[in-house]
Nucleic acid binder design. Structure first.
Lengths: 127, 127
DNA sequence: CTTGACTCAGGACTATACTCAATACTGTAA
DNA sequence: TTACAGTATTGAGTATAGTCCTGAGTCAAG
């Protein structure tokens, strides 16, 4: 399978495949006489693997870690940390949301900016 | 006030001030004879303004929009959109969190990666 | 007068995950 | 044979929000 065929099969950009190879997320494939990369279906599986891990919020660096992990425990650890990270981000966003909604509630909506509560709130010394 | 003094006062990096000037978030200050930038306390206020808007989740581009906004309604609109954006991000993260926790619950925690539920789940065709 | 601290402008560098552009070579079909 | 589609490599560009570097000029103190 050429790189173009693999790209179509796994639904990613050709350059993405070469990029993953450069990052060592994908092993270097054999080359045919003309120098073209030659892939088999294992590469398709591995790419889908990467995409699924990404969809779970893992970065490419973390995906690489996952690939290099041999102990189940390590993967458990990695996933736990990811959960902590996600939860912290959720909590931050919830705080933001509360503040923004508070501002919005106080906004008079009409008139010049000088009377606007949102503007004033942002201006106030205390955030 | 020189740029260094302003930086110390408003607790940002010198380069950040020049950067904000380049982005037109801060007006170009007067220059003294030697070519140094000359600031007054209004700049300090404005920088703090920017920092607070940033803390509310606005990007610098949005802060600039806020500065150029004259109608309260527009600011209301901007803030509403920001809330929508934040809520959508929260919802995405909650989904991720659910999936990750599900994986974690199924993980046997000990043994080789071959028996690991997390690994298997990521590998499965359905994400 | 020299040293050290400060400032200037312009550009490079950081992280992330690609994507594109340029130039050259290869393979296939009409 | 010629055209076009595919592939190769290398390097640059995208977005965001800065930070750092370089080489040069400036200021104040000892």
């Amino acid at each position: 399978m050429t790189i173009g065929q693999l790209a179509k099969l796994s639904n990613v950009n050709i350059d993405t495949i070469r990029y993953y190879e450069k990052l060592k997320l994908l092993p270097k494939p054999k080359r045919s006489k003309n120098g073209y990369r030659e892939y088999n279906n294992d590469y398709n599986i591995k790419i889908n693997y990467i995409l699924r891990a990404k969809a779970l919020g893992f970065t490419l660096r973390e995906v690489k870690e996952i690939f290099n992990t041999n102990e189940c425990e390590d993967l458990f650890e990695l996933t736990s940390e990811k959960i902590k990270d996600v939860e912290s981000r959720i909590s931050n966003l919830n705080n933001l949301n509360k503040k923004l909604k508070f501002l919005l509630k106080k906004c008079p909506v009409t008139g010049s900016i000088d009377n606007c509560s949102i503007m004033k709130s942002i201006l106030k010394t205390q955030s």
